Simulated assay, not measured.
Amino acid sequence: MTPKLGTIGIWRWTGGLDAELAAEVERLGYGTIWIGGSPSGDLEIVDTLLDATDHITVATGIVNMWSDDAATVARSYHRITAKHPGRFLLGVGVGHPEATQQYRKPYETIVSYLDELDEAGVPVGDRALAALGPKVLELSAERTAAAHPYLTTPGHTRWAREILGDRVLLAPEQKVVLDTDPERARAAARPAVNNPYLKLRNYVNNLRRLGWADEEIADGGSDRLIDELAVHGDAEALAQGVRAHLDAGADHVCIQALPMDADPLPTYRAVAGALNLTG
């Protein structure tokens, strides 16, 4: 059975997660902690977060297929689920071509990796796949329990749901900035969006597919693009940004609080309150 994600989760880079933060996120009513930044295949951070909590799900968003082989990751999966059954979702993905000289035939690599996870006994219901384009979205529906798009918009969520139908959970990431001053909020968001994502062709191609012109993607992104990729404002504005994905067909939305080097808890608390997560 697929781990329960809840409706709202948080996405945070590996180095910004610890036991204390996990316990507070669970107390606030979030359903899942997504571990970003390509966590290592030993997945020791997953043990740390699950040991510190009672019921929240932990997911990887994502383990990079080029960095860790499927056999290593499968052993980590079995270790984790033996101790914490039903609370871990293994998210995997092929990353982006600029990250590795080995990046060749990415679709075939994904299929082969999923085949190896099958052989190692990692159930389809316990895994998710990073997915942006139509082929990989289709593959996520065929071979995993959840599609996990990153750096997307509600428009992408609507389009992805049309491709997926009701065959798989759709769990996009949404960046948020708790700040009502637009210029200050964009200054906090733009570095996290621009570097590296607006320089990576899979993300740029996805934005083009959604109708964004090259001049809006260039030079750190237009204000309009930044505002959609990183919703800003008060707690209710952030909640509306999350609801836009749910209204477009998402089953679950994980928020990434920006700026990355700031304490995320004020944002988590504000969004949890606006969405009544503990109610």
Rank of each mutant, 00 (worst) to 15 (best):
L129I: 12
T152D: 01
V124R: 14
A248S: 14
H148F: 14
A250F: 03
A239Q: 05
P182I: 09
G165S: 09
T2I: 13
R167W: 02
A145G: 13
L200M: 14
P259E: 08
R79C: 12
A59D: 02
L132R: 09
K83F: 01
A82Y: 00
L129E: 04
L137H: 08
V122P: 05
T81N: 06
A188M: 15
H245N: 01
T48W: 00
V271W: 02
V63D: 01
P172T: 05
V122A: 04
K135A: 12
G15N: 14
H156L: 15
P97K: 15
T109G: 08
I8W: 01
Q240G: 03
E236D: 14
G9Q: 13
V253W: 07
G86M: 12
E108V: 02
E98A: 15
D261H: 15
F88E: 09
P134K: 15
A248H: 02
T57H: 04
E173Q: 14
T180M: 08
E24M: 07
K83P: 00
V168S: 08
V92Q: 06
I45M: 11
H232P: 08
T48M: 11
A239G: 06
G86H: 12
I8K: 05
D118I: 13
A82V: 03
G165W: 05
G31K: 04
D251L: 05
G15M: 06
A270K: 12
G249C: 10
I62N: 10
E138Y: 11
A187N: 11
P85E: 10
A59E: 07
R224C: 02
V94M: 11
D115S: 13
R79S: 08
K135S: 13
G91A: 08
I33M: 03
V122T: 03
A71V: 14
H252T: 09
G211H: 04
P264S: 06
D118K: 10
S222D: 05
T7M: 15
L229T: 02
L151G: 00
T109W: 03
S40A: 12
V136Q: 03
E138M: 14
A218L: 00
S140V: 15
D263R: 14
C254S: 15
V46S: 01
E183G: 07
R158I: 00
H84C: 04
G16C: 11
W159N: 05
A146P: 13
D126K: 03
V92D: 03
M65S: 12
N276V: 10
N205M: 08
R12V: 08
A147R: 14
Y77E: 10
L210F: 06
E236T: 15
E44F: 14
D18K: 13
R158V: 00
D219T: 12
A188L: 11
Y203W: 06
S67H: 13
R209D: 02
G121S: 06
V271T: 10
R208W: 00
A99N: 11
D54W: 09
L28A: 03
L17A: 06
I80K: 06
S222E: 04
G6R: 05
E183C: 01
V111W: 00
I45V: 14
L258N: 09
G121V: 07
I226E: 00
V92C: 12
G121W: 06
L17M: 11
P106W: 12
V63C: 02
F88I: 04
L246T: 02
L210W: 08
H96Y: 15
N202P: 13
A218V: 02
G16F: 07
L210V: 09
D251Q: 08
